[in-house]
Design a protein around this nucleic acid. Structure first.
Lengths: 215, 215
DNA sequence: TCCTATCTCTGTACGGCGTGCAATATTGCA
DNA sequence: TGCAATATTGCACGCCGTACAGAGATAGGA
């Protein structure tokens, strides 16, 4: 199991895994930078380039770590398929909102890691089991992914580290001009809660109903 | 109409508008930086701070410019409401994909400009006219916004300046392991086209159907 | 007309970022 | 023991946003 250094040269003091670990630890508060992670590991920045080709590689690794923090097994089980998707989506949303800048990362780096593949496959299976043709199931999967990531990113930008209720309160304090934007003004209590988990669940259900209807 | 300098001091050589103009011109190819825009205007970087408090302000202004490039009047007219939403959404998608980094900007800077308010109000009106209760119309509006921005951002990251067909071809060349990911492998021709306008339109319709069903 | 308060723009600088390159120190193998 | 391969470092470059002090331009008041 252990890799033996068959090659000459000094022992490695780090590993890609340890670097990603350190980056995850630093993730609270600031977005991880090469220099920051290196400092956290007590090492010069360029040392990391022995293990990673560039910053983008660190970001890709972080993306898969983040994805793995939301348990994909939530997509399995005996509950109704809509409930399972909702549970997993909420878990993933929680992960993305839990660390500042996490949601933005997901949009930057491509999601081609093993966890992403697993989640995709399971979503596909759910939609096929729900009666969709495979091709439609694939499209529906994309709809769900887009919604979770898109919503989480917008919400993360809006929260910016604050609590959900604080943001809602701040929004509620804004007065929309009822003359030019009557409907916006009239529905402001709802609009102010756009970036809440309630709205997230509502959107998701609407979405899933639409997908199911396309069978 | 013209602002007269009632105050002492030299004439201004620029204006916030001209700075945003310059930033928009530079937008093709690289994301606009304070230093880049200043160089484009033949001026030292700090000069911009006479007109803008910081870089975030430039980004906010750019967001509204970008939004304004997709004609909000597409949401009006005599066509069916779903068609109108689709036309506008596709136009906005085109704008966001037309300039590199534009989609990411939308997620970074808050959308509180006048154009965003106008679009929100018109979407609300469409959903209300379609029979939704005002509160549900507000939620549906959010669903549409999330989808357009989320999808455009994912697609922009995937395209990365290349053409749609080039990306599809590249994806098609990937072989998914049919043992571990049988459904993904089976639907690969569809999955490979996730970031296309076709898929975008399909998703949007599914979404709108779901919203309409929630009336 | 000159003075002075005010405003714009510049020079310079700081601290941060990612990362390339040459040198150094460490190791395994012949 | 020496050689070749390798990890880590010091240094440097070119970006970035932006703070601060000073120089020059301009208006109103004397």
């Amino acid at each position: 199991m252990e890799e033996k250094p068959q090659r000459p040269g000094p022992k490695r003091s780090l590993s890609a895994t340890r670097i990603v670990d350190a980056a995850m630890e630093l993730f609270d508060g600031e977005s991880p930078s090469i220099r920051g992670v290196a400092a956290h590991l007590g090492v010069r920045p360029n040392t990391l380039y022995t293990y990673l080709p560039d910053r983008a590689a660190l970001e890709r690794a972080l993306v898969d770590r983040l994805l793995a923090e939301a348990d994909p097994d939530l997509l399995l089980g005996r509950k109704g398929w809509r409930k399972r998707v909702e549970d997993y989506a909420c878990a993933l949303r929680g992960v993305l909102l839990g660390r500042r800048g996490a949601a933005a990362l997901l949009h930057t780096a491509p999601m081609d890691g093993p966890t992403a593949a697993l989640v995709g496959e399971r979503l596909l299976a759910i939609f096929v089991a729900a009666g969709l043709a495979p091709d439609d199931a694939a499209r529906a999967t994309y709809v769900v992914i887009v919604h979770v990531l898109g919503s989480a990113t917008l919400t993360a930008a809006d929260l910016n580290g604050r609590g959900e209720e604080a943001v809602v309160a701040e929004r509620m304090a804004i007065q929309m001009d009822a003359q030019y934007f009557p409907l916006t003004a009239a529905t402001w209590p709802v609009v102010a809660r756009w970036n809440t988990e309630d709205q997230f669940r509502w959107s998701l259900q609407v979405l899933l109903v639409g997908c199911a209807g396309s069978a």
